[in-house]
Every structure is written in structure tokens, then in C-alpha cells.
Simulated assay, not measured.
Amino acid sequence: MEDADDLDSERKRDRLKRYAKRAVTVPLSVRTSDLPKRAASGLVMFVVTVFAIWLGGLVRDAFFVVVAFICMAELARLVKRATKRPLNRALGLAAGAAYIGYAAWLLTKIDTLALLLLLFGAVICVDTFAYFFGRTLGGPKIAPRISPSKTWAGLLGGAVGATTALFGYFAIGDVQLGREWPILLLAGTLIAVVAQSGDFLESWLKRKASMKDSSNLIPGHGGIFDRIDGLIPVTILVGSVLIAQYPHWLDR
């Protein structure tokens, strides 16, 4: 009888502990404590990227190729740790090479500086707005087993960020939007969803590999793959549409 009472008491304590963990709200200052480091690293990456794009030509293309190779090396490291089966490793590496390589190839084909800056700017806005919305609002997780930090509030923030970038692009270009603004809202939402999909893909791979980051190359951000996981699928989406619309870029 005493053993049953002790077991019941222990279960009650466990329930109280679980409730307490859910009830305690982590202060915003703690949830954003890594912001200065992330911001500094992000600024450096932004300046280097913009400078390479501004130089254009071989320098720009070489920059994209180098980033792609580093990203592929990090992906290969994840794949190697995620599975020990030779066939699965080969398939993972082949898929990763096609995934990253196609995105890098598309970037070298886009010859308009403004469009490249919009592409990078939209993804940066998705990440930034998603970070602040997610950390500030919190709320339900999208897929906690894959990426515990990703929330629906963060996805909403990402959509707001991408849409803001698109509207800002047309505002700077002094383009008067009429009935097109719903299309921009839809495009911003689609970009955010695609970017989050790329993030989830890498998160799933990292979970399989039991790794927090793809590498420790960038302070506060992890590796190159961690930083451009959303950019890759967005580039594939936007770049493919642009190539279809402007096929002359294929002759470059």
C-alpha cells in the first residue's frame, strides 16, 4: 500500500514539474541573448555578399561557387554522420550536389544587380522577421520533432518580412502598385514557406546526424549551410521562374 502511495506521490510531483516548466516564461532578454553576436556576424556576411555582387563578373560568380562548395562540404559531413549505409550516403550526396549546384548555377545566370539584391534581401528579411516574431510571440510549434524552435508565429513573421522586402523593392523603383499588391502578398507568403521548407530540410538532416550546426564557421550562426538553408530553395524557385521568363540568361 505504501509503495502505491509513494508511486502516486511521485507521479503528482512529475506532473507538477512538467506544468511548472510550461508555465514559466523565459524572459525576452534571455531568448535574444545571442542577438549581438548574430547581428555582428550577419552584418559581416551581408557586407561581403553585397560587395561581391557589386563587383560582378568573375568575382561574383567565383564567390557563389566558393560558398556552394563550402555548403556542399558541410552537407556531406551531415550525410556521412546521418547514415552509415553506402547507398543512402551516395544518394544523399548526389541529391545535395544537385540541390546546391543548381541554386549556385542559377545565381551565376541572373545578370541584374537589383534582382540579386532583392533575392538576398527577401531571404534576409524572412530570417530576421521570423526570428523576432518567433522569439517574441512564441506559440505553437510547426514541427517540434524536426525543428523545436520553429513556430507558426515565426512563419508569419517570415511572410511579413518577405512581403516587406517586395513592397520596398517596388517603392524604391517608384513603381505604382494597383491590383498587383495581392500578388505581392501571395509571393511574400510563398517565399517564406519555401525558405522555411529549406530550413526544415536541413534541421531534419542535422537531427539525423545528431549535430546542432553544420559547422562552427560563423559565430552565432553555425555554418554556411545553416545560414543559406532557406536561400537555396528560394533561389531555385525564383531563379527558375526568372530563367523561364528571360531565357537569354542561359546564353551567359
Rank of each mutant, 00 (worst) to 15 (best):
D127I: 07
G101H: 02
D8K: 02
L242V: 08
R252W: 04
K109N: 05
L43V: 03
D8S: 06
I243H: 12
Q196L: 08
A187Q: 05
A103L: 10
A90S: 00
T128L: 11
A52S: 06
A52C: 10
R31I: 02
G57T: 04
F132W: 08
L186V: 15
L28E: 07
D6S: 05
K21G: 11
Q196T: 15
F200G: 13
K17A: 14
H248G: 10
D213F: 05
V66M: 07
Y169C: 05
D61Y: 04
I142Y: 12
I228Q: 01
L185I: 15
L250W: 08
T83C: 02
G188I: 12
R13V: 03
W181H: 11
A153P: 09
W54P: 09
T112C: 07
R60T: 03
I218L: 06
D174A: 14
R207K: 09
A95F: 03
A82V: 05
Y102A: 09
T163M: 05
W249N: 02
Y99A: 03
V123G: 06
I110L: 11
L250N: 02
A192Y: 07
L115Y: 02
D8A: 09
A76R: 03
V67I: 08
D14F: 14
L205K: 01
E10N: 05
F170M: 11
P140A: 11
V194Q: 03
V24Q: 13
T163F: 09
L166C: 10
Y99V: 00
G178E: 07
F63R: 12
V24I: 14
Y131A: 13
T108C: 07
A153Y: 03
P219T: 09
F170L: 14
I232K: 00
I243Q: 11
G42S: 03
